[in-house]
Design a protein around this nucleic acid. Structure first.
Lengths: 210, 210, 210, 210
DNA sequence: GATGAATGAGAGTTCATTCAT
DNA sequence: CATGAATGAACTCTCATTCAT
């Protein structure tokens, strides 16, 4: 009931899915301000249809973000369940960049998207659940001695929210630029004699959007 | 002399400076697509004045970017000259966030800005000079044993270009969120037994905009 | 079929026609630089509608010109077919001033319009066809002894392009000013002992827009 | 006193003359809506100087028009005085196209110019005087039997106002297009058995701007 | 007096959203 | 229900005119 009001007719549901899928792609490619008509075209429907499903741009952004968050949440759970160590889970999670990146971008890149997400309870639930998972991973990592003790899941989330934004400038895959940057960050998280950090560990609680 | 044809009249120069300063702030706060009128208002001038100085948005973006790059370059040189070790220089450079952040954002965040900068020779010179400095710092750090050997200045630049984007979500200064993230990254750069990185060190050459 | 991709919806077509009609009137009255909003208002639609149909001013000018040329062409053919003599056909053609005048003005008055028309193949075809008709009329007139022999269809076109511009100053219909001017010009074209002309007959070929 | 308020200083006078000369050229080339700055640049002065002499665009248009009318008037008087026949005077007058054309265009081409001229007494005087001369020429031509009897100076003025507009389309001088058109018109004015005209002769009085 | 900088109103154009078909 | 047409507000940019230097 929270999620789906009424069962949509089969074709309507198909339309809806096409729209969300198209929106995800188009948002990723052209940013969250693309003309709605562009999205409609990519989805193969008229603007009218798009607006029937999603009363405005915010709603569409929300739908895409929810979907992405849900995927990431599932990935996090699977990682924790299936990987032998917490560190491996962390690696796998960060490696699975695509949906994670999409959600991060929508959540952070545009002022307008941020506003929309802030007030959406469903996105909030996904977020919270995701932070719970991350917290588990971090604690487990600290218990197993792979993750440094002076950080919290909030630190990790923030750090990743930075690397996972739209990768800049460079697209020569032979450089492994993105992978190297990720690895360097992970190395920063490793438990080893390291620079003392300012402040205290940042928790998932801390970075809840006010 | 390369840039300005004739000396501007005193008041005109003052206005110009106000405009660039205002643009920097407003770009940072609202992104590179803010209405020009917003910028004009922030600078305390009419739109007309803004357009007299900068024929279009691109020109204004360029002006801001040049200034920022120049400041960062100066900071990098000063850091290398004045700090006792290369590692300290690196710390100081990354700590000096404001202009660095502005330039990074303009350079990377918006497609439109990227296009504009790509073809501007003056910005290019600053970029190149900056990468030269960074390269010096990185090599000196590797020589003094503080920076891991398997990275290049390109790796460092990329990593910082990620952290230095618009800080997300969180502004509670008591959390030291930004400082912690930076410190974690720096720890990842430290010379210590660490995860082997994929690929080869990325150089300044590598990340020159094609 | 060459022009319109798909059949427009009934109401859209009606709007489109209204726009072209309004544009013709407004161009004639206020020149080709009138604010687009003026045209939109005259057509009873919003600017947005206008721009949906015609991506810019040029496109609208073209549409008006094509329509006018088509009408004039039809009139010329009808005149030649139905009038007993070529001279009568000429009279009738010049008398039918409205669409002829509209096309002439758009074609000639503004630099901007000229540029637009120059590169439009469809307008070009109408122009050429029209000159062919005019040529027939002129030759037939010379054969029947009513049109002086030392002129070509280009001379006639040019002469009319002059009289048919925006009538100046005077609108007191009781003066028959326009009719008198036209009659005087026609008298200049009459086959009779007359001032020798400089140069050679100007043909339709000669005045094709380069 | 009507004409020149106070004697201008020599350099100021030079400036003024340069401005009017530049304006005439620029109006002719780019139309009466050119940016004022364009005119100022062509005159080699700043906009401020231009505005000091001419409070607005209208004033400048007036100045140019007055000058042109004055030149045409002088030419008409000279023609009547020096040519052996009225017909020759007419020929010479129409041949001297440049200033005549400039005035005609300014007077007729743009709505805004028309408005300005309508209410200017000085331009009015030149106009009237010119029509008086033309009337003399026409009557003399009719007396000497070269000009048809059923026309007035208004007919002639109107006819010429049509041919003397911005010549269209064609600039190949080898075609003598303009000369031929003029000659054809003159032939229409010739005294010879001709098409009866509608209405009555149009006088100079008739075409005074209301 | 001359200059050119500043202003602000207005034109062209785009696009989110509504609504007739 | 789907479609795509219509609307109008918002934004960019230009230029006539005023005014500080």
């Amino acid at each position: 009931m929270t999620v789906s009001e009424t069962r949509l007719r089969a074709d309507a549901q198909r339309n809806r899915d096409q729209i969300v899928a198209a929106a995800r792609e188009v948002f990723a490619a052209l940013g969250p301000d693309v003309p709605m008509e562009e999205i409609a075209r990519a989805a193969g429907v008229g603007v009218g249809t798009l607006y029937r499903r999603f009363p405005d741009r915010e709603a569409l952004i929300l739908a895409v973000a929810r979907e992405s968050f849900a995927q990431v949440l599932a990935a996090a759970r699977a990682a924790l369940a299936e990987e032998p160590t917490a560190w491996d889970a962390l690696l796998r999670l960060v490696g699975r960049t695509h949906p994670l990146q999409a959600s991060v971008q929508l959540a952070l890149v545009s002022e307008r998207a941020r506003e929309a997400l802030k007030d959406d309870p469903e996105t909030g639930q996904f977020r919270d659940a995701l932070l719970v998972e991350l917290d588990r991973i971090v604690r487990a990592g600290q218990d197993e001695g792979t993750v440094r003790g002076d950080i919290g899941s909030g630190d990790v989330a923030l750090l990743f929210s930075l690397v996972l934004r739209q990768p800049p400038v460079l697209h020569d895959p032979a450089l492994y630029a993105f992978e190297r940057a990720t690895a360097l960050m992970l190395d920063g998280l490793r438990a080893r004699p390291a620079t003392p950090l300012p402040g205290r560990p940042i928790t998932g609680e801390d970075i809840r959007i006010r």
